[in-house]
């Protein structure tokens, strides 16, 4: 694996110690939804953030929520993790209602918010102890997991530096570690790769796949279409507070997730021409209905 200064380091096997408690308790993993919402609605004054979002994410899936700025992605995560109360609709996370039992949900899941830094006046090591205390982890377990994560994301030398003096990328590594510290069955991660260098991005992507392979669920919010296409089993495109489609990137069959995205969010075709191979995009735009129909047939698209 090449580093930024040209050196090569040996690739480390990523040990993913995960539990499948929820799946084990639920029986057959294939029939279980880790997340289910029905007609979720949320407004902030005159601004409608969610306009009836209905969504199911089976356990063991790496699901990506894709959408333009202000589409409702962060609001969805905040409702599903009990941070916000919806105006209407229902939600279930690992079988728990986040509206009536927000703490119950947050005990079970890991959360990586997009724009949040670790507490300024703690060191990463202290912050992990803090998170461990809140989550009832013993000190030895915290130490062991911190060691693993610091090694994995290459920030061991910064464990005793005050968080406020860390770079944004280092702070992001701390937040990633904190989200996974209790080995949750399900994580909500909002732009997890932001501020990370390409090597660490690859490491995190690889970890997420292994984490999913071990039966856990990832709910992944992003603007980055390439990352979503590369990483996710299924992608939901949200626009103006509604889920407009879901696609399986691996089953797009010649169509590109970017083109699907541009069509679904109503972006101007010229944008697509500028960012895609022109003829193909024009063709796909012109044959919108048939493409969608194909995709529906091939990839089990829901609208």
């Amino acid at each position: 694996m090449p580093t930024t200064d040209g050196r090569r380091v040996a690739a480390r096997p990523l040990a993913v110690a995960v539990t499948r408690g929820y799946l084990a308790a639920a029986g057959d993993a294939g029939d279980v939804n880790a997340i289910a919402t029905a007609d979720l609605r949320k407004s902030y004054g005159d601004l409608t953030a969610l306009a009836g979002l209905t969504l199911d994410v089976p356990a063991g899936e790496l699901f990506g929520l894709l959408g333009p700025n202000g589409a409702g992605k962060s609001t969805t995560i905040r409702i599903l993790t009990g941070q916000l109360r919806p105006d209407a609709g229902t939600a279930s996370v690992l079988g728990i209602d986040p509206v009536t039992d927000p703490i119950g949900v947050r005990e079970r899941v890991g959360i990586l918010p997009e724009q949040e830094s670790p507490p300024s006046f703690m060191t990463p090591r202290e912050y992990f102890d803090f998170v461990g205390s809140v989550r009832d982890l013993n000190a030895a377990t915290v130490d062991e997991r911190v060691e693993t994560w610091a090694d994995r994301l290459a920030y061991g030398a910064k464990l005793d530096t005050m968080n406020t003096d860390l770079s944004r990328g280092q702070q992001q590594k701390v937040m990633i570690t904190a989200a996974f510290l209790h080995d949750p069955d399900l994580v909500f991660i909002d732009e997890p790769l932001a501020n990370l260098d390409p090597i660490v991005q690859e490491t995190v992507k690889r970890f997420l796949r292994e984490y999913r392979d071990a039966g856990n669920t990832v709910f992944f919010s992003t603007h980055d279409i390439d990352v979503a296409a590369d990483l996710c089993d299924r992608v939901g495109i949200v626009h103006e507070g509604e889920l407009v489609t879901t696609r399986r990137p691996a089953a797009l069959d010649g169509d590109r997730l970017l083109d699907v995205f541009l069509r679904e969010v109503g972006a101007d075709a010229n944008v697509a021409v500028g960012e895609s191979a022109g003829a193909d995009v024009n063709a796909s735009t012109d044959t919108d209905a048939s493409t969608d129909a194909d995709a529906n047939a091939d990839a089990g698209t829901e609208r």
Binding site: T123, R125, A139, T161, M162, D165
Partner: peptide, 15 residues
């Protein structure tokens, strides 16, 4: 730029 500050783990001592 103020230098980066480091600290021993005071969290456990407090607990």
């Amino acid at each position: 730029e103020p230098p980066a500050r480091t600290a021993e783990n005071a969290y456990r001592a407090w607990r």
